[in-house]
C-alpha cells in the first residue's frame, strides 16, 4: 500500500499541471455539451454522452502526458532499482486511471450543480461509461507497456479525435433518442456490464504484469 501511494504521488507530481487541465475538462465538457447539444439536453442519455466524452478526454490528457514523460526520462526504469517492483508499477497505472475516472465523475457533479439544464448522473450512465472506458484501457495499458508510448500515441490520439465525431454521427443518423434507447437497454444488463468490466480489467492487469515483467527497460 505504501509503495502504491508513493507511485500515485509520483504520477500526481509529474502530471500536476496537466491534472488541473483534466479537472477543468471534466467540469467544462459536460457544461459545453449540455449547451451545444440542445436536442440531447432533456433526453435521457445526455448524461452518458457528457460523461463518456469528458472521461475519455481526461484519460487522453493524463495518458499522453505521463506516457511522454516516462518515455523521455525512463523514470520507471529507475524506480525498478528501488524496492518498488514491476508489479507495483503496473498496479499503480490502473489505480491512477481509476483516479482519473473519479475526477471525471466529480467534475460532472460540479458542472451539474452549476448548470441547471444538465441531467443528474444516472447509475446506468456511470456503469456504461466505466465499461466503455475499461474496454479501451484494458487493451491500451498492456499495449503501451509492450510497445511504449511513442508507438501508441497515434492510437490514443485517433480514439480521442474520433470519439466525439462518432457520438455526433450516431446522434445524427440514429436520432437523439438512440442514446435514450441505449441507456434503457443498458439498464437491464448493468450487472453483466459490471461483471464484464471487472473481469476485463483483471485480465488486462494480469497480461500487463506479464508483459512488463518480461520487458527490457
Amino acid at each position: 500500500m505504501r509503495k502504491l501511494i508513493v507511485l500515485l504521488r509520483k504520477d500526481i507530481t509529474l502530471d500536476k499541471a496537466n491534472l488541473i487541465i483534466v479537472i477543468l475538462l471534466s467540469i467544462g465538457i459536460p457544461v459545453y455539451i449540455s449547451y451545444s447539444l440542445q436536442s440531447l439536453r432533456l433526453q435521457k442519455g445526455a448524461d452518458f454522452v457528457s460523461l463518456f466524452l469528458s472521461s475519455f478526454f481526461c484519460f487522453f490528457m493524463s495518458l499522453s502526458k505521463l506516457g511522454l514523460i516516462e518515455d523521455k526520462y525512463k523514470g520507471t526504469a529507475y524506480l525498478t532499482l528501488t524496492p518498488i517492483s514491476r508489479k507495483d508499477i503496473v498496479l499503480s497505472k490502473y489505480v491512477f486511471l481509476l483516479l482519473v475516472f473519479l475526477i471525471s465523475l466529480a467534475g460532472y457533479g460540479v458542472s451539474y450543480l452549476a448548470t441547471p439544464s444538465l441531467q443528474p448522473l444516472s447509475f446506468a450512465a456511470v456503469v456504461t461509461v466505466w465499461t466503455a472506458n475499461i474496454l479501451f484501457l484494458s487493451f491500451y495499458v498492456p499495449l503501451e507497456l509492450k510497445l511504449g508510448y511513442e508507438n501508441m500515441k497515434y492510437y490514443i490520439t485517433a480514439v480521442a479525435v474520433i470519439s466525439p465525431f462518432l457520438i455526433g454521427l450516431i446522434g445524427k443518423y440514429g436520432g437523439a433518442s438512440i442514446f435514450q434507447r441505449f441507456m434503457e437497454e443498458a439498464g437491464s444488463i448493468l450487472p453483466i456490464m459490471m461483471m464484464f468490466s471487472f473481469i476485463l480489467i483483471g485480465a488486462s492487469y494480469f497480461v500487463s504484469v506479464r508483459v512488463f515483467y518480461k520487458k527490457d527497460l
Binding site: 501511494i5 508513493v6 523514470g75 526504469a77
Partner: peptide, 21 residues
C-alpha cells in the same frame, strides 16, 4: 544515463525515491 525526471527539482525527486526505502 540520467533516469531522473528532468523537470523536477532535486528535492521532489528525493521525496519520491526516499519514500520507497
Amino acid at each position: 544515463s540520467s533516469y531522473f525526471y528532468e523537470k523536477q527539482t532535486l528535492g521532489a525527486v528525493k521525496n519520491i525515491i526516499s519514500s520507497t526505502y
